[in-house]
Design a protein around this nucleic acid. Structure first.
Lengths: 197, 197
DNA sequence: CAGAGAATTTAACCCTGTTAAGTTAAAACT
DNA sequence: AGTTTTAACTTAACAGGGTTAAATTCTCTG
C-alpha cells in the first residue's frame, strides 16, 4: 500500500513549497508583499488549500520563525563542540548570527518582526531565549562562572546587543553597507566579552 | 476677518485629534488594530477626511515617529545642559529613553516598528541617527575624544545597545516585568560606558 | 437670495485573511 | 465493473483594510 505514503510525500512537498514560496516573495519584495493569495498562485493551488497546511498566516510565519531559531541553535551547538575557549565560542556565535542574517534576511526578519514582517507568536522568542539546553548560556557560564541568575542577566544582555546591532543595521543601512558594518559589530561584541570577563 | 483663523484652528484641532486617536487605539489594542476607518469613527468624520490631513496612513505614522524622535532629542539637549559629566549625561540619556518607552509604548513602537507597528519611512531613522546637532554624539565625543569616525562608530554601538535592550524587553517581557528589567538595562549601559572610557 | 467655493460624504475599487458550501477526482467496496 | 464513500480541491462569499472619484451638503460671498 504505497498510496498513503505517496499522499504523505505529496503533502510534505506542498507544505515545503508553501514555505519556500513565502520566503521567495519576501526576499524579492519584502514581507508586506507576502499574501496567502500570492503564495497560492505561485504553487498553483487555490487560496483555501493553504489552510490545510497552516491554520493561519500567522502560523505559517511562526513555522519559518521556528525554523530560523532551530537552525541557529544547531549552529551554536556545533560551535560549542568545535572550540574550547568560551571567548572564541562567543565571538563565533556572534559571527554566525551575523552571517545568517545577511544570507537569510527574510528569515531573520520573521524571527524578529523586522521590515514589515509580523508574527504574533512570542512563544518562540521565549523558547529561544530560554536557558534550558542553551549553548550560549553555557558559554557565558564558563566564561564568567557566577550564579545562574547572574549568567542569565549577562545572557540577556548578550541577546540584546547582538539583536540590536543586526536589526538596526538591517533596518537603517542599505545592503551594500553591511560589509563595512560587520567589523563594527564584531568589535562591539569583543568589547562586551572583555567587559564581562 | 477671524474666519480664516477659526478654520485654521479647527484644522489643527482635527489633525491633532487624528494623531491622538491613533495613539489611543494603539495603546489600548495595539497598532495592528489601528485603521483609518476606526480613527474616522472615533473623531466622527468619514474616512476620506483623514486624507485631507495625511496623504497616507504611512505618513500619519511617520508624523508620530517624528514627534517621538523630536521629543527625545529635546530631552537629550536638556540633559546635556543640566549635567557636566559626560558619563552622567549618557546614563541619564539611557534612563530617559527607558522612561519614555515605558510611558509611551505606542510611540516607541512606531519609532522602531515594534509590535505590529509598521511605518516605511527610513528617512526619520537616518535623521535621528544623524551626527549633525546630535547631543548624544557630542557626549560620547567628550567622553572619548578620538577621531570623528571613531565617535560615530561608538555612537552607533550606543544606539544599538539601548535599542536592543528596550525593544527586546518590550517584545518579550510582560508589562509588570519592566521594573525589574530596568536595573539590568542600566547596568549594561554603565558597563558599556566604562568599556569605552 | 442666488451662486461660487469649500467641506464632507457616499460609493466604489482593489486588496487582504478566512470560511462554508459546492464540486470534482480518487479510492474502496460489493 | 459499477456504485458509493471519502478525500481533494475550487468557487463564492464575508468582513475588513487603504484609497480615490464623484456626488452632495454646507458655508460664505456678492
Amino acid at each position: 500500500m504505497g498510496i498513503v505514503e505517496r499522499r504523505e510525500r505529496l503533502r510534505n512537498q506542498v507544505r515545503s513549497d508553501i514555505v519556500k514560496t513565502a520566503k521567495e516573495i519576501a526576499r524579492e519584495d519584502g514581507w508586506t508583499a507576502v499574501s496567502i493569495r500570492k503564495i497560492a498562485e505561485v504553487i498553483e493551488y487555490s487560496p483555501p488549500i493553504l489552510y490545510e497546511y497552516f491554520e493561519s498566516k500567522d502560523k505559517l510565519l511562526e513555522a519559518i520563525r521556528v525554523e530560523g531559531f532551530d537552525f541557529l541553535q544547531a549552529e551554536f551547538v556545533k560551535i560549542k563542540s568545535h572550540f574550547r575557549n568560551p571567548e572564541k565560542q562567543l565571538s563565533e556565535v556572534a559571527r554566525c548570527i551575523w552571517v545568517f542574517s545577511v544570507e537569510n534576511p527574510e528569515i531573520f526578519q520573521v524571527m524578529f518582526n523586522l521590515e514589515g514582517a509580523y508574527c504574533d507568536s512570542k512563544r518562540v522568542y521565549s523558547h529561544a531565549m530560554n536557558i534550558r539546553d542553551n549553548p550560549v548560556w553555557e558559554m557565558i557560564a564558563v566564561l564568567r562562572p557566577k550564579s545562574g541568575e547572574m549568567v542569565t542577566k549577562t545572557y540577556y544582555e548578550w541577546w540584546c546587543l547582538t539583536y540590536g546591532f543586526i536589526s538596526i543595521t538591517m533596518t537603517t543601512q542599505p545592503r551594500y553597507a553591511f560589509a563595512q558594518a560587520e567589523p563594527i559589530y564584531m568589535e562591539g561584541v569583543r568589547r562586551f566579552i572583555k567587559s564581562i570577563m
